[in-house]
Every structure is written in C-alpha cells, then in structure tokens.
Amino acid sequence: MLDDFQGAATELADWSVLKGEVEVFSLREHLDGEDALAVALADCDIVVTLRERVPFPGSLFARLPRLKLLIASGMRNTVIDYAAAQAQGVTVCGTQSSGIPPAELTWALLLGLARGIVEESTALRTDGPWQSTVGADLHGARLGVLGLGRIGGHVARVGLAFGMRVSAWSPRLTEERAAEHGVELAASKEELLADSDFVTVQVPGGDSTRGLIGAAELALMKPTAYLVNTSRASVVDQDALLAALRAGRIAGAGVDVFDIEPLPAGHPMRTAPRLLATPHLGYVSHANYTTYYRQAVENIQAYLAGSPTRLLP
C-alpha cells in the first residue's frame, strides 16, 4: 500500500481475512520517481495506490513483471495507463469515494481565508496583535462554483445556506442543471470569475480542464476576491497563481492540490503570501479511508476468487 502517511491503511480494514494468501505491508514514505517505485514494488503481486499521486505509465508496468492487481482509491484515475496494464496482464480496480469530504475542506479553506483564521490564531498564540484582520462577509457575497458536479453541488448548497448568491459554470453545464441546485448559470467562465467574491474549483482533472484558470483568468478576478482549489492542480496554472498572490492581484487563495506532491522543501508554494495551503487533505477523512481500504480488501478477495470487481476504467 503506497503513501500510507498516517499509518491508517492497516487500522481501518480487516486485512486478517487475507492471512495465508497475501502478505500485507504499507509504505509510510512517498516513493519519488519511477526508479524508486520499480525497486520497492519489484516483489509485489498487488499494489494499492491512493488517488492520482503516483503515475503508473507503461514504462513502470514493464518493470513490474510480478504485478497482477492494481487497486486505486476512487473510480476515476487519469495517471494509470490502462492499455499498458491490460497488455501486461494487470487487472485494475477502484473503490468508491465520497464527494462530501472535499466539499467540506473547500469550506474550511474558504472560511479560513475569509476570517483570517490562521493569522489571528497564530497571533493569539504568539502574543501578537489582538485583532489584526477584518473579515470578509459571506452573506450576500457572490460565490462562483466552477463545476457543478457531485462535489460542486455540495459546495453550492452550503453557499446558499450561508445566504450567498451562488452562480456556477462549466463547459457542459445547462440552465436546467443549475436550476436543480437553485443556483444561477453564469454566461461564461469569464463572467463567473469577474463577478464572484469567492471562486471554488470543482471540475475534474484531465486534458479538457488543464490550465482552465491561467494568468488571463486570474486577471479578471476582483482584487478583493478569493480562489479555492480542492480539485486538481492542473486546473489552475500554479505559476500564474503564485504571480497573482505575490502581486496582490487577488485577496488570497486556498489550495489543497499541487503540481508536485508531496511538496519539496523550499517549494515556493510553501511560502507564498496570501495563501492558505493544506497537503491534499480533500479526500482524507475517516469515512473515506475506511471505504477505500475495506473495499481494497474486498477487491483482493474477489480477484483471488477469479471474479474481480469494480474494474477500471
């Protein structure tokens, strides 16, 4: 099991049901690069990977001749070469994943930015100034939701509960779909960005959304507006966002996803101004992890029985 940073993988599922058939171990440290993965996984017949942090291209499959079963959390993964897996005789399975935890983290970041939670808490704990920020109001403000799918729908409903004016946009979003959620359909991505006081990114990753928000799009936002991205790093141009934050072109950003994960020491995103950042915690919740690992066990049992389930893609 890859990237078991918290040591939760073996605690949240009953792996003992595989005793005598599978030797189970987890890796607490991230393996950086194909060479490290090829060495560490050389003797593995089964690998469990989390989300899309670790790419599995054809070149890696070719270096893992023993690998027979790859299990990914979630039922969508853009960094697995499925054709190569099939050619190598590797079965690929997924697990269910709830959209509620990332929606909740979106609001944690948005609220943290709006009310200066980190700055004020840090000042209080270090004998700093008493009240140094003036919070941004949510009630009556415009929330722009980029992507009104499973997660974006949750985000939009919470915005409405806060009394916000909520609009949404995505390339295929219709007025009917927006109306089902009780939100307005923005005429364009540009209108959404220009009119919103808070923008949240909930579109999926992939070629169609890569660079959807770049320097030109960030320039459309109000200088008092905030951007929150808990979707995929590829959707927002990281260099353009860093430039906007450093220049004060937007009030701030909340980011949970990065071009490189884990972020290397000294990476500019670690010290960027006006940035509230978390280490890809969107999917990291007790309920989600329990689902991932319990269904990973079920997937292994089904594979060993000759009837693999939850096949990807």
Rank of each mutant, 00 (worst) to 15 (best):
Y226M: 13
R63E: 05
L138N: 04
G94T: 02
D45C: 10
G153R: 11
L146G: 04
T122W: 11
V118M: 13
R53S: 13
V17T: 14
V257L: 10
D4E: 09
I71V: 15
P129T: 11
R165G: 03
R51P: 04
D259M: 11
Q96H: 13
Q88M: 12
V92P: 11
L160F: 07
Y303G: 01
F61Q: 05
L212T: 02
L245P: 08
A84K: 08
A141T: 00
I151H: 01
A244L: 05
L27M: 15
E11K: 15
A219G: 03
D127H: 15
F198L: 10
V235N: 05
G112C: 10
P55V: 09
L105A: 07
L275G: 02
A136V: 11
R51N: 10
N77T: 07
F56Y: 15
H154S: 09
H286W: 14
A233G: 01
G112D: 02
G33V: 07
P268I: 12
F25E: 15
S97W: 09
G248I: 12
A244C: 06
K68Q: 13
A156R: 01
L192E: 00
G140S: 05
A103N: 07
G205T: 04
L148P: 06
T309N: 08
A296L: 06
S167N: 14
G266F: 12
Y303S: 02
P273Y: 09
V199I: 14
P308Q: 01
D256T: 04
L138Q: 00
H181W: 13
L67H: 05
A84R: 08
Q88L: 08
S188I: 05
L50K: 12
R294S: 14
S307K: 14
L60V: 00
F61I: 04
L143E: 01
A302C: 04
H181S: 13
L18P: 11
S188M: 05
Y82R: 09
V201Q: 06
S208R: 11
D197R: 03
